[in-house]
Design a protein around this nucleic acid. Sequence first.
DNA 1: ACTTTCTATGGAAACGTTATCTTATTCTCA
DNA 2: TGAGAATAAGATAACGTTTCCATAGAAAGT
Lengths: 338, 338
Amino acid sequence: MGITIKDVAKRADTSITTVSRLMNKSGYVSKEAKKRIDKAIKDLDYKPNVMAQGLINKSLSMKTVGILIPDMQNLFYPAILTGLEDELERHGYSIFLCITNRGQDMEKKYIDTLLGKNVDAIIFAAACARENSADYLVELSEKVPALLINDYIIGSDICSVMADEVGGAYKAVTYLLGLGHTKIGFINGNADRTTYRQKQEGYEKALAVNEIKPNNKYLMRETPNEQGGYKGAKKFLALSDPPTAIFAASDQMAIGVIRAVLEVGYSIPEDFSLIGFSNIPLAAEVYPQLTTIDQFPYKTGKLVGEMVMKMINKEDLTQRRILIEPKLLIRKTCRELK
Amino acid sequence: MGITIKDVAKRADTSITTVSRLMNKSGYVSKEAKKRIDKAIKDLDYKPNVMAQGLINKSLSMKTVGILIPDMQNLFYPAILTGLEDELERHGYSIFLCITNRGQDMEKKYIDTLLGKNVDAIIFAAACARENSADYLVELSEKVPALLINDYIIGSDICSVMADEVGGAYKAVTYLLGLGHTKIGFINGNADRTTYRQKQEGYEKALAVNEIKPNNKYLMRETPNEQGGYKGAKKFLALSDPPTAIFAASDQMAIGVIRAVLEVGYSIPEDFSLIGFSNIPLAAEVYPQLTTIDQFPYKTGKLVGEMVMKMINKEDLTQRRILIEPKLLIRKTCRELK
DNA sequence: ACTTTCTATGGAAACGTTATCTTATTCTCA
DNA sequence: TGAGAATAAGATAACGTTTCCATAGAAAGT
């Protein structure tokens, strides 16, 4: 069936050792032998068996990294993936895609699968590293290069690339405040994820700096997708004293907010100001074009790729945690409060 | 470092052979031995080495399939990927993700990489199989199971899962026609891709049945994303006699249309009816909720997964081409023309 | 009671590669 | 003109599995 190194050796009238030596450029091979072997390889279209290579030399790279992503419906991840793939492809590395949204145990199962397939590194996208798996992750990171996106584990030095979400949320709310809004509704995600806890922190900090007391009725916790945004906005709209501006914890939530608001006949930004978070590619394309906090998802993916390559090649990391400074991106969903 | 079957055998006080037998449920193993081995496996957290397994089972299976996707910004693909991953994961298979949008040669390069990594099958998402690579694909499909999503190669029997796009487009336009629209603008993608050629065919067929001559000024060719939709709609809007309804070749184009129309102060569906194509998850979440042709992207991915598993396991395929019947999904962007 | 068949087990060969040893020839330079 | 490098190449032992073969006691059929 398959052409083996044995066939090549026989055809080139030499030993498998010599062929192997040539393939790996280890040790001496004469010019004549090289010529014969090269020809045989070409003639037979010989491709070394990766399994056998991986078996003998456990350190031999499959040139593959695995990435765990909670949910492809969250458009932050396709954007990350694009950046990551761009970078890894340059180095000849491939990506194993794992979607973990089907519960806790899935995560461990995927990690086992990846480990069994000898990946060179494992990347965890935000929300994959839950509280209860922190210890496991630390342990894992000793076996194989591991990297977190938009998350970190307290008290460990696991590598990560993350946006300064506290700062980002702070910028968003401060911008709204600067436009004269004081009743700022915040539709956040579940507090057990680092990203949402941090946004909360930034939100509260910005209010505190402006001496505004956070009001519980202006805080909603919803699933971090369009439906969550829609639901949260509906609740705000039902309030006797609704907020004049809404900060959504993700662009997709903001898109849900847009629908909720426009459906009942209000306008954005005339009646409500709205700001999202992340700057997924879609944010610039919906109506009205979404003012948001640019978290540079593509760049994040790219940086993750660079970092993971350094880890694989055991190069020195100048920093084990890269913090991306998010930027306010003003489009068309906010306006000054009269 | 790694726990091997040898360690398990030693700890369970039995032979390698017996452990292997238990793992593969081949041959006899006594209740007592099973108990001891199970415990040892658990205690040691033993994971069989895929390399060694792959080496001996000359199938060389890495339990991996590669998928080539032109562009992660096209939200049809994340949806497909979700369905595909759901199905493959059940069988313990992983996905190599390749994004090919960086030009022609990329495709071949990726295929070589995948082949070198011993994938069990290769899946091509629409638009990866260009005219000029048809021969190459046919040749490839003899070496490794290959499957096309939403595309096919004329005169070959390469497996594929595709929506009946002619029928889908026909339904869309017929629906618009039924609402009384006769001036139907069509924003299509590039004709060198099968999907767009077929939509064109359905569009023309529906017009023909209703004895309407296709009018070139109502046909735009744009890039198949929001910006393309936006541009196309702008051009329609600039016409002295603009269409009353717009059929966008993808939901994302339709989202661009929404922005173009709403930005200049018109309403949907009051001033323009709009229908999209695919029913990406987002379609139900934008304002106004998009009437579209449901192409069942998740189900497509799932079916692709099932089919590819059958191909890998060399099971009989009841059909080499699965045709998905798209369905009109009425939401809120179309209304009757007065 | 004596062959079959079933149950249960372990030894050893094989898979395709690389690494370690060993051997043999040819240079190099005191 | 030797002694030690440098060059060249092969035999063989790993790597961790599965599969084939051999063995043997127990159950079952005659």
